[in-house]
């Protein structure tokens, strides 16, 4: 697929993103405190942190299998409407705060029930298999969806590197936890959440842990993603490397992964621990099994006025329904 980026103005006129963000932060700060006029601009600028990573194109990305023909959502929407609770619970928090995440150096440790446990650097991970563009639907458990042109390769290519043992039945994914830069995780809201004790209490248990059954993890649809729209992932989208499991609700696709562990028993996953009746281990997209508090029959595709019908397995039934043959999906939600 050809990806076009509109360039209506010369590059020299584009404000660098970090400067733009600094200005915005400064404006917010100065309006908030009313000292905007009293403080000279350079001083305020110096007080700010250097901001986030730039947009970097990935070379040699080829179209991959399983891409759908639907129109991807806008880059601006995919990168500003995120659930990344470590940075706060509002959809816009991650885009505003995740730039502080330290993503270099980065490595993933793969351990547990495997013949050859390994720690792989990001560079090594990027080279394990050819990078492909895969345009997938993303359905959030909250009832909205988008279409994202991810870049990555099948997770199975990475997992095969360590030669899983026969006793390995599940794969656990652990996201990075950097409390010093993750203000949403342990902050005011998280603390109050715990105090309120509603819905399982205590916010989420960090680090964020997700899990898949081994056959799900090895399924060719399951993507290890390093980019979107032909560029390296932005931090709010789970840079530098994340999971994408398109037939499951979005929270199953763990972001910013640092550890992969092969285990025998079903892992205790973050949302399941927080509220087991609302968020099951499988969490396959299923219009017939509602969330206890809202319907899952329909979804709002971002950019559309009316809701559309949610598809079984988010439209990937042909590929994945066989994984769940004979299982009662109401019970294993």
């Amino acid at each position: 697929m050809l990806i076009k980026h509109p360039h209506d103005c010369p590059a020299s006129e584009i404000t660098p993103q970090n400067l733009f963000r600094q200005r915005r932060e400064f404006l917010k700060y100065s309006i908030g405190t009313g000292i905007g006029l009293a403080l000279p601009w350079p001083a305020a600028q110096a007080a700010n942190e250097p901001a986030e990573d730039p947009r970097i194109k990935i070379a040699g990305v080829k179209p991959g299998p399983f891409s759908i023909a639907e129109k991807p959502n806008k880059y601006e929407h995919i990168t500003t409407y995120n659930n990344f609770y470590e940075f706060g619970t509002s959809k816009t928090d991650p885009a505003e705060r995740a730039f502080r995440l330290k993503t270099s150096p980065w490595s993933i440790t793969i351990e547990g029930l495997v013949k050859k446990p390994k720690t792989l650097s990001l560079d090594a991970i990027m080279k394990i298999a050819p990078l492909e563009e895969r345009i997938y639907r993303l359905r959030c458990v909250e009832g909205w969806s988008m279409v994202v042109p991810w870049v990555g390769y099948s997770l199975s290519a990475l997992l095969k590197q360590v030669e899983p043992l026969g006793s390995a039945k599940y794969v656990e994914f652990e996201s990075t936890y950097q409390p010093d830069v993750m203000e949403g995780g342990a902050g005011f809201a998280g603390g109050l959440g715990g105090f309120g004790g509603f819905g399982g209490g205590g916010g989420l248990d960090w680090p964020y842990v997700e899990g898949l059954r081994l056959d799900e993890a090895m399924h060719p649809l399951t993507l290890l993603s390093v980019g979107l729209y032909g560029e390296l992932l932005q931090k709010q989208n789970g840079a530098p490397v994340r999971l994408v499991v398109p037939w499951k609700y979005g929270f199953k696709s763990a972001k910013s992964i640092v550890k992969i562990r092969f285990v025998e028993k079903e892992p205790a996953t973050a949302w399941n621990k927080a509220n087991a009746t609302e968020y099951g281990f499988y969490s396959n997209v299923n219009p017939e099994v509602d969330h206890p508090r809202w319907s899952q029959a329909t979804e709002r595709r971002l950019g559309e006025l009316l809701k559309r019908k949610t598809l079984m397995f988010n439209g990937y039934g042909d590929q994945v329904a066989s994984l769940y043959k004979g299982m009662d999906l109401r019970k294993f939600y």
Binding site: Y85, T89, E142, F188, A189, G190, L192, G193, F195, G196, F198, G199, G200, G203, L204, A274, N275, R293
Partner: peptide, 10 residues
């Protein structure tokens, strides 16, 4: 309505 963060309801 709230999924986890009960600050405002509180």
């Amino acid at each position: 309505l709230v999924k986890l963060d009960v600050t405002w309801p509180l």
